[in-house]
Design a protein around this nucleic acid. Structure first.
Length: 423
RNA sequence: GGACAGAUGGCCGAGCGGUUGAUGGCACCGGUCUUGAAAACCGGCAAGGGUGUUCCCCUUCGCGAGUUCGAAUCUCGCUCUGUCCGCCA
């Protein structure tokens, strides 16, 4: 959600920012709606003011047995008129809100301009891409050959875009979850949180999934939503709160299953577990004073990178262009891990600074003796576990079809060093 | 699912239909006192909005309707929380 005052002050820069995200100019429409709304609201307030005045005059007149016929006549008029104006003000206000709530965040000045991922800027490349003296297999072949990824059963049980993990790869999923949570809590100061996977619509609105992207998520018959990421419950923990500055920054991490309809992805990544309706993820969320947003984004990105570094997976960090960012973000770094079978890097984490955009939707504020305002929120994957399994299977694969276990995970795997070994 | 009870400011907790946006307490901030601190005393302390800016106005007592000149207060519906029963991982 945008600060309407900011748009009033500088409509052309707002339109310019929207242009960089591929949104047509809207400032004049917004300001027009805003002006009409305020005119009605002002008139309404005058009427309400007079109504309150009459009410207290009546109280006095009653005590003094004064004449009230004139007051009663005016009161009757107001009583007829006020609801009409109230209705009008309500309509205009909700129209403006509906319109504003479907407009994406404004990119930060240091975000590269561009229409899509072609304009993303590589920040750094970390780790050596592995060299194979055989043709590296895709993860789904490796997993099926090992008998530890069962796509056929997944189709029977749930349909396409689901995956069933078995035995040592199921264990690997659990190991990764624990390794990631341990690292973020013990080393980076994140509070471990265990969140619901079903949330109400206020949560989905607060973080920006609703109203515009309803078709990307699943909803239940009783009006709840399956979380597309635990960013939703974690960030909404501060909804409608006024937080003392001394409690900032708040840093939280949670494991969750994530559910996505992938409505717009027909035909993309149909094989394997790159793009599923359900996947596991450990998420990072920070709530900070607005002046600390950029600094926190760097910190969060490094926390996510630490996981890739310790797993010794090669990756690169991309600064997303204005056209490639998510709805609520004003600056985003993607971490992309090397996928040997595709001979390219693929997204495994997305770390975004949302500034005050989500906080304004949620009513998440901070307060101090000297200042108050909306907090800034950040979220990042630390990391997507499904894609981490893909990366490990492919980067650590051996010519005999087995897969090395990354050193750091061995303790989490009960000492197992190779997937496919009897352990 | 059934039966009760409740929902008021950062928290606790008052509130005969008429200066109650709301007594009081706690917390917090400022001051007096003190070598310093504590205690005591004094003062301050909700949020959002308005073509108003030393001041004023409007809205908000879970949410939504209704009664009334006037609703935190009365009526109805909804939601949520608590307790007991049933069911259940």
């Amino acid at each position: 959600m945008h600060d309407i005052r900011r748009i009033r002050e500088n409509p052309s820069s707002f339109d310019c920012a929207m242009g960089s995200r591929g949104v047509a100019p809207v400032a004049s429409v917004i300001l027009d709606m805003d002006a009409r709304r305020r005119e009605v609201v002002s008139n309404l307030q005058l009427m309400q003011s007079r109504r309150n005045e009459i009410a207290s005059l009546v109280a006095v007149a009653k005590q003094n047995c004064g004449d009230m016929t004139e007051l009663e006549r005016e009161a009757a008029d107001l009583k007829r008129m006020t609801p009409l104006l109230e209705k009008k003000a309500e309509t205009l206000t909700s129209q403006l809100k509906d319109f504003l709530s479907a407009i994406p965040n404004v990119p930060r000045p240091d975000v590269p301009l561009g229409a899509n991922e072609m304009a993303n800027v590589c920040q750094r490349i970390i780790g050596e891409v592995p060299q194979f003296d055989f043709s590296p297999k895709p993860h789904y072949e490796i997993g099926e050959t090992l008998g530890m990824i069962d796509f056929a059963s997944a189709v029977k049980i749930s349909g396409s875009r689901f995956t069933i993990l078995r035995q040592q790869i199921a264990r690997l999923e659990r190991a990764l979850k624990n390794f990631m949570l341990d690292t973020h809590t013990n080393e980076f100061g994140y509070e471990e949180v265990c969140v619901p996977f079903l949330v109400n619509r206020e949560c989905m609105y607060g973080t920006g999934q609703l109203p515009k992207f309803a078709e990307d998520s699943f909803s239940t018959m009783d009006g709840r939503w399956l979380i597309p990421t635990s960013e939703v419950p974690l960030t909404n923990l501060v909804r409608d709160m006024i937080i003392a500055v001394s409690r900032l920054p708040m840093r939280m991490t949670a494991y969750s299953a994530c559910f996505r309809s992938e409505a717009g992805a027909a035909g993309r990544d149909t094989r394997g577990m790159i793009r599923n309706h359900q996947f596991s993820k450990v998420e990072l969320v920070s709530v900070v004073h607005p002046s600390n947003g950029e600094e926190e984004l760097e910190r969060m990105t490094h926390a996510a990178e630490a996981i890739l570094q310790r797993l010794e997976l090669p990756y690169r960090v991309m600064l997303l262009s204005s056209g490639d960012m998510g709805f609520s973000a004003e600056k985003t770094y993607d971490l992309e891990v090397w996928i040997p079978s595709e001979n390219k890097y693929r997204e495994i984490s997305s770390c975004s600074l949302c500034g005050q955009f989500q906080a304004r939707r949620m009513g998440a504020r901070y307060k101090d003796d000297s200042e108050k305002g909306f907090v800034s929120t950040l979220n990042g994957s630390g990391l997507a576990i499904g894609r981490t399994i893909v990366a490990i299977l492919e980067n650590y694969q051996l010519v005999n079809g087995k897969v090395m276990v990354p050193e750091v995970l061995v303790p989490y795997m009960d000492g197992l060093r190779e997937l496919g070994e009897s352990g």
